[in-house]
């Protein structure tokens, strides 16, 4: 019996080895490069490495069909469009009154569906942010055609920002650039019609590394013309100084405020500035209007906001946005 068992085992082993050799030890898979949503990728990969097969783009760390990317485009309000509404202005005291309904018109490529469903590439919903706050979720309709929705905007004169974000069913935003649409527009009071400045780029909330680096800053102005510096003060004209992480507006009344000055923007509306090295933190980027002779531009025109005193009597014109310094 022992001999029989041994022989039986030997035969089984031989059969196993044979099967392994014949069919078990072969390469049988066939890699299909046409499959989408399968291959992992990283947007930070070097472009030369071609992380995805041809015809696919990296979206949310997966290679997806480049022809079916979610995309959004804001049609209205137009870029830097000024909407004259009955809004309050700091010159008239604290903001008052109801929110302003602004018609947001957009279109794009996204199969709208309710949040919480299983992720399916190309499906999802649109979240509308106003000045950084989520204000609206659009999960039905056809955005292939133009969609228009009313969005409530705070009744404050000045720059406002729409952000439209295509979001997957599982709540994860699509991270391809086309899935995000932004729009900067103005609200102004028909009473004051005063100058405004806004940092159009970088967009608030943009992240940067901690090391010192050069970035491009673009400004938008309302009722103010950016010109190169000269010797004559002209109402409604001047340039802007860029400050990094200063405490505006009180900083203007401090002679040491210029310590955070990092650049100047004139007629070109853009300039390159160097961000100083920083730890991981939120930082402020401020654009403040200056007269042509570099003196601080104030409202009313002939006041000097650098002279200590109540700011509501001599209001500087500036905008501060928050950017993020994060570790790599």
């Amino acid at each position: 019996m022992r001999t029989h068992d041994t022989n039986h085992r030997t035969a089984s082993q031989r059969l196993t080895v044979g099967l392994l050799l014949l069919c078990g030890g072969c390469y049988t898979a066939e890699l299909d490069p046409e499959l989408t949503g399968l291959f992992a990728c990283d947007e930070d990969d070097d472009e030369a490495s071609t992380p995805c097969p041809s015809g696919q783009t990296c979206v949310n760390h997966r290679c997806e069909n480049a022809d079916a990317l979610p995309s959004l485009t804001v049609l209205a309000p137009e870029d830097e469009e000024s909407l004259v509404e009955n809004v309050s202005d700091v010159l008239m005291g604290m903001p008052q009154g109801p929110a302003i309904d602004v018609i947001l018109s957009f279109q794009g490529s996204l199969e709208l569906s309710s949040p919480g469903e299983d992720h399916e590439f190309g499906e999802g919903h649109v979240v509308v942010y106003v000045d950084g706050d989520e204000r609206l979720v659009i999960d039905s309709g056809d955005i292939g055609a133009t969609m228009a929705v009313e969005v409530q905007v705070p009744p404050v004169a000045g720059a406002h920002r729409f952000v439209l974000q295509a979001v997957r069913n599982d709540g994860l935003p699509y991270d391809n650039p086309e899935a995000t649409a932004t729009r900067l527009f103005w609200l102004e009071s028909p009473v004051t019609r005063r100058p405004f400045v806004a940092v159009k780029s970088p967009w608030p909330g943009t992240t940067f590394g901690p090391e010192d680096q050069t970035i491009e800053v673009e400004l938008a102005t309302l009722n103010f013309d950016l010109v190169d510096p000269s010797n004559t003060k002209v109402e409604g004209q001047g340039h802007a100084h860029i400050h990094y992480d200063e405490g505006f507006p009180m900083c203007l009344q401090n002679p040491a405020c210029d310590g955070g000055y990092i650049g100047i923007i004139g007629q070109s509306r853009t300039t390159e500035v160097t961000l100083p090295p920083s730890g991981a933190q939120a930082a402020e980027l401020t654009a403040v209007l200056r007269h042509i002779d570099h003196s601080a531009y104030g409202l009313p025109f002939d006041c000097d906001p650098t002279v200590p005193g109540p700011l509501d009597l001599c209001m500087p014109v500036f905008e501060t946005i928050e950017i993020l310094r994060v570790e790599d």
């Binding site: 050799l21 390469y27 049988t28 898979a29």
Partner: peptide, 20 residues
């Protein structure tokens, strides 16, 4: 050689199949 390389080839095949 056959078994060792077959196992290696099979492992690669399984990895690709599982990924897909």
């Amino acid at each position: 050689g056959g078994i060792a390389l077959g196992v290696l080839a099979r492992q690669r095949s399984l990895d690709v199949e599982r990924a897909q």
